[in-house]
Nucleic acid binder design. Structure first.
Lengths: 340, 340
DNA sequence: TTGAAAGCGCTAACAA
DNA sequence: TTGTTAGCGCTTTCAA
């Protein structure tokens, strides 16, 4: 295939490679006439700079990494859209790494970043992530600036873009209580993640403000296996003292709840009411339509990328301990109020 | 940050950089004892090879590109999962490029690949893509092997992984006819894509086999703007001789149909029946549940990546003109048959 | 079995 | 304004 190189251009024009390089980067120390000749030839010969030669020399890859648990989830896929929109504008490339909620994988990925492959990192933690040494190690070595989005690491001193999880948990729970729920179960995927604990705090606060005692039995931790999650949820809904309200902190669990209710002939919202954290565009089309806490997913991705590029632009690896909070929205629909 | 380099290891052990390099790659020309010493030190000093130095030298990036229209779509996000699962196993990195259905962007992205940034490319065409010079140019230059998935380019001689679009179009239409539809509209996003024309061919064949004349007025092309798509669909459903059956070839259009039907008080499936190409896991939970043509999205992604790596493994840029067809499935639900 | 040296393609001092 | 030179970190002949 043998691409056109700067050397070839130099030879062709009887110039040095340095002159070509500078001309291509529109340096002020090259005459306009030369620049023009270089650009013209580069264009004619279809010169494309070798991506890795420049990266090696300048220690800059023009590439960022996005590390997230999952892509087949409306929140994350929308966040990627937000990230990509900024990266594209900046002329950056986006490497994607899926952890599938595996802590081990998250560690391996971060370790790999020491290779200098990326200039910056956007990250959303695994549900399993309970220790933060791999993150501290990365930060200590000043490898690349790191920005967390959504599933942030409170123990880290870097920038974090998130939503108001406490308030969301509170609002959702309050709504369920006001709809008459007495026994509200929380479906969670992690007891480590800060978003989980914050949503849970909001839940507890709402209970307390309405004089409902908190019962740990209503905390339901689900794992990573869809089938066993389904069986687990079904079992809970089948019990005599089943919950009459569900707060699902993850979109994928909501499907399971709907299916279980259908199979057990539980009527939503009459027998049981459901609020879910979800960005599903079809939420309003479900049967019944789903009351959601909807996060500003695209905006979160965009904000995270924007903060990251701000630090890349000024070549400072050390990001301030920013904490940007974008509000989520409670959208009331048929799974909590009939006829909505 | 200053990472550990081969040079440092060499100095520390009083060996040449060549010896270190060979030892690290487990070359047979290095003694076991030396290998051991090198490995031990590399490990202790936490040596991570510079990603781009190796890539520059070996002209190999261990990176593939995935070029697709959109990530916030269940088909594509599942396909990415399939791709990532294979890439990870092979130790490859995955760059993601979203075209957002823009032909211009697709061209730019492909052009960029001449920089040698990626070893291989997985691609699904834009809805706008009607000319294939950018693809031919890429192939002619032997930049990197290219595998198409789903939205393939028939004009290219490379490998293609797809589903049985003709049969799917046929099955879906036949089903609608058997449910009593007389006037079936097809919602499409492109008159260029081969998947679109094949699904359309299937549609036409089914009509013909059931002695229903084909009327071009029932072909409805939607664009890239969600709002105007909605208004357009709503307008069509509001007309006196509106269709009594809809075949949506894209998931995102189905939401619009449901919304329009709701607003116009059209009952699904009584007044109008709907089949949609969709991988939405919530399809069975919609109101009414959605009859779908469901594609093997994960498997398509996996198959495409597998074919690509087969060619990367044997270092042949020229892929055979393979055409792998994985079957889609018609899943009958409530949007075509009441009570399902 | 090890080392010396060249060079992947590009950039950045420094010199001219 | 242009050229020379050195080198980013690694691999790969070829020689020792």
């Amino acid at each position: 295939m043998d691409n056109v190189t700067i050397k070839m251009l130099a030879k062709e024009l009887n110039l040095s490679t340095a002159a070509i390089s500078k001309a291509l980067r529109d340096s002020h120390e090259i005459s306009d006439s030369t620049k023009q000749r270089v650009l013209e030839l580069a264009n004619r010969m279809n010169y494309i700079p070798n991506a890795y030669a420049g990266s090696l020399r300048r220690r800059k890859s023009n590439t960022i990494a996005v590390v997230l648990p999952e892509v087949a989830d409306s929140f994350f896929s929308l966040a990627i859209n937000g990230i990509e929109s900024v990266a594209r504008e900046k002329g950056y490339h986006v490497l994607i790494y899926l952890t599938h909620e595996s802590f081990k994988r998250e560690q391996d990925i971060l370790k790999e970043f020491q290779s200098g492959r990326v200039d910056g990192i956007l990250m959303s933690l695994t549900a399993e992530t309970a220790s933060y040494q791999h993150i501290c190690a990365l930060e200590a070595k000043n490898i690349a600036p790191l920005v967390f989005f959504d599933r942030v690491c409170d123990e880290s001193n870097t920038a974090k873009i998130m939503t108001d999880d406490f308030e969301s948990g509170y609002k959702a729970t309050k709504h369920l209580i006001e709809c008459g729920c007495k026994k509200i179960a929380v479906l969670s995927i992690s007891n480590y993640l800060s978003i989980s604990s914050k949503r849970l705090e909001g839940y507890k606060q709402a209970l307390q403000d309405h004089s409902i005692p908190f019962d740990p039995i209503n905390l339901i931790y689900c794992g990573n296996d869809a089938d066993s999650n389904y069986r687990f949820i079904r079992k809970i809904l089948h019990e005599k003292d089943r919950p009459d309200g569900i707060l699902a902190t993850v979109e994928k669990l909501t499907t399971k709840v709907y299916l279980a209710c259908r199979e057990l002939s539980l009527r939503i919202p009459d027998d049981i009411k459901i609020v879910s954290f979800s960005n599903l565009s079809a939420a309003s089309l479900l049967n019944p339509s789903l009351t959601t806490i909807t996060q500003p997913a695209f905006e979160i991705g965009k904000a995270a990328a924007t903060v990251l590029f701000k630090s890349l632009d000024k070549k400072s690896f050390q990001l301030e301990n920013i904490r940007e909070v974008l509000p989520s929205e409670l959208i009331v629909r048929g799974s909590t109020v009939s006829g909505q």
